[in-house]
Design a protein around this nucleic acid. Structure first.
Lengths: 119, 119
DNA sequence: TCGACAGTTCGATATTTCTCGATATGTCGT
DNA sequence: ACGACATATCGAGAAATATCGAACTGTCGA
C-alpha cells in the first residue's frame, strides 16, 4: 500500500490550484461546522455558510452563482468540502479528513520515501 | 498584511496538481541530502538528483526528457524546487521554505480567518 | 576543435479548464 | 398549484495546459 496516492492527492492539489477555489476553501475552513453529529446520531443544526453567502462574502457578488457552483462541484469532487441540503439552501463545510490528509502530506516527520518512487 | 497570499499559494497548489509533477516533487523531497549513485552504484558525496535520474527513477524512461524538463520548469516557477548547474548536469532539490509554507497552510493551530476573507 | 552527452526551448496538436448567460431543478410559503 | 427563491446544469467560446519530436544550447573529454 502506498503511503501517498499520487493521483488522488494530485486531484486535491489541482482543486486548490485555482485562486477562486482556494479562496472559497479558505473561507469555508474558517467557518463553523454547520452540523455536529453526536454519538447518538443526532444532528445538531447550526448555521453554516451557503452558496449565496460565499458569493457575497468572498466575491462581493462580482461572480455569477453559476461560476461559484461550478467551483464548488470541483471542490466536492476532490473530496475537500461537504455539501448538505437544508431547505432551499445548501450548507457548505470543509472536510476535516481532507485537511488532515493534506497536512500529513507536508508533515516533515512523516515518511516520504514510499515504494512509489522506486522503479 | 495577509496571512495567506491566495494567488501565490494557488500557484504552488496548481504546480502540485499534476500527477507527473507531484511524483517528481515527492521524489525530490526524499533526496534532501544531495547524494546520488553513479554507474557503479557508488555514492557521490556532493551530487544530488539530476534531470536524467528523475526520468529514470521516477518514470522509467517512459517519458521524453523534454516533458520532464517542462514540468521541472513549472515546479521551479512555482518556487517549489531549486535547480543548480553542476558541470553538464542540473542538480535538483526541493525547496524547504516552500514545504514549510505549505505545511503552515494546513496547520490546524495556525490562524485561518485572515482579513482576506472579509469584505 | 570535435564529438558526445545533459538538458532546454520551440512548434504543433489534442485536451482540459474557466467563464458566462440561459435554462432547468428543487424547495418553501401561501 | 403557483410564484418566489436558491442553486445546478447546459452550451459555447476563450484561454490555458500537457505532450511529443525536432532542433538548439551548454559542458566536458579526447
Amino acid at each position: 500500500m502506498a503511503v501517498v496516492d499520487h493521483d488522488e492527492t494530485a486531484v486535491m492539489f489541482k482543486a486548490l490550484g485555482d485562486p477562486t477555489r482556494l479562496r472559497i476553501f479558505q473561507f469555508l475552513r474558517c467557518c463553523p461546522a454547520p452540523v455536529a453529529l453526536d454519538e447518538e446520531g443526532q444532528a445538531q443544526p447550526a448555521d453554516g455558510p451557503t452558496v449565496g453567502e460565499v458569493c457575497c462574502s468572498v466575491f462581493g457578488l462580482e461572480r455569477p452563482t453559476s461560476t461559484i457552483s461550478f467551483h464548488l462541484k470541483e471542490l466536492r469532487n476532490a473530496g475537500l468540502i461537504q455539501v448538505e441540503r437544508r431547505g432551499k439552501h445548501m450548507i457548505l463545510s470543509a472536510r476535516r479528513d481532507a485537511l488532515a490528509r493534506l497536512a500529513a502530506f507536508f508533515d516533515p516527520s512523516s515518511p516520504c520515501c514510499s515504494e512509489d518512487n522506486k522503479p
